[in-house]
Design a protein around this nucleic acid. Sequence first.
DNA 1: TAGTTCGATATATAATTCGATATCACCCCC
DNA 2: GGGGGTGATATCGAATTATATATCGAACTA
Lengths: 192, 192
Amino acid sequence: MNYQTVPFAEDLLRARTAKGWSQRELSAKANVPQAQISRIERGVVDLRLSTFLELARLLDLEVALVPRSAITAVTTIIREAGANAHLRTVRGAVNTLNQLVRVLSADRAKESIAQRLATLAFEIEHLAPTNPTHAWQTELAEIVASLQSEVEAGADPSRVTELTDYLTKFRNQLAHRRPDAERPAYTLDDED
Amino acid sequence: MNYQTVPFAEDLLRARTAKGWSQRELSAKANVPQAQISRIERGVVDLRLSTFLELARLLDLEVALVPRSAITAVTTIIREAGANAHLRTVRGAVNTLNQLVRVLSADRAKESIAQRLATLAFEIEHLAPTNPTHAWQTELAEIVASLQSEVEAGADPSRVTELTDYLTKFRNQLAHRRPDAERPAYTLDDED
DNA sequence: TAGTTCGATATATAATTCGATATCACCCCC
DNA sequence: GGGGGTGATATCGAATTATATATCGAACTA
């Protein structure tokens, strides 16, 4: 309705997709119908403040009234926080992966899977920054966490292979969904 | 209606009174009826986002969606910006006043008024911090600016006296409206 | 191919805000 | 005492949202 609200609607949409939530997922958490979320994100309704606050809260965002004299400083902080969060997630995941590679390399029987994981870690690290606004951070963190707990529990080969396959698929999706179209130099074993 | 909105209603109220605006004044600027402003500030309505944004904008506030990871940094900035704005105004006004005192002291005929202004500057400087949230900053700045331009224009004695009387009245109001009740040590020539 | 998920869309109803207006109490000042 | 300014309140109709429900097409998947 009101053009002033559109940027905030876009912020909510960005935050939701960054979490990897569907409209129905957010709908259930917020007690707001999915249809209403759809309209809010498209900026066709002038939603009430309480709805705005509730959605923001669920998306780990806080609404702040910033004095005009402080907005430059605040926007700088927000921008850096977003960038850092993105880089922190990727860096943490890659570090964990490399750590697992070292552990697995110690066992000759798991050397090949360790090599696969090392390659994946490298590729994901260099592929990630091209997709800064999207959902995959949590998914990446979850996969790596599963892998880590599996390795710590003894690293059942079939399970580790399964998770590595999953991580490969994830890497392919990451490459495939790149917003700007150019592909990386190395080939991808696409499955679609 | 919704308890979440109450803090923001209070922020708007604070910002409005800090500007020295009445509800009707803000109402006229925002194209929102005074009754609605009253309901908003009392937190009895769940106002629409567009209304919230418009009011905030008019009060020199920007609405920002802050990632939870950044809120401590942002609140620090906001708090310091508010405190600095307050202190800047007072310090600037006091400095200007003392500067005017020096100019006026050079003229023997204006020595007594210079002495009055010096006392006022001292009192306002030490009275101001007890009233951090209220309207008078702009009023103080306006009075001092008038005084300055008058002095620069030649300092017509009757006009300077008039403005000094106004400043005295302002100082008394400032003392009178102190939120915590204790009065300063020096006596006040109250007029009520 | 059939089934699922996702987002967009279309209703209809109930609840609530919004805007306009008027009134009241309070305070300060002439 | 009267007059002006301020804020709170009430009432009324109009506008808009919230809600529930159902549906639709597109994309993906088994």
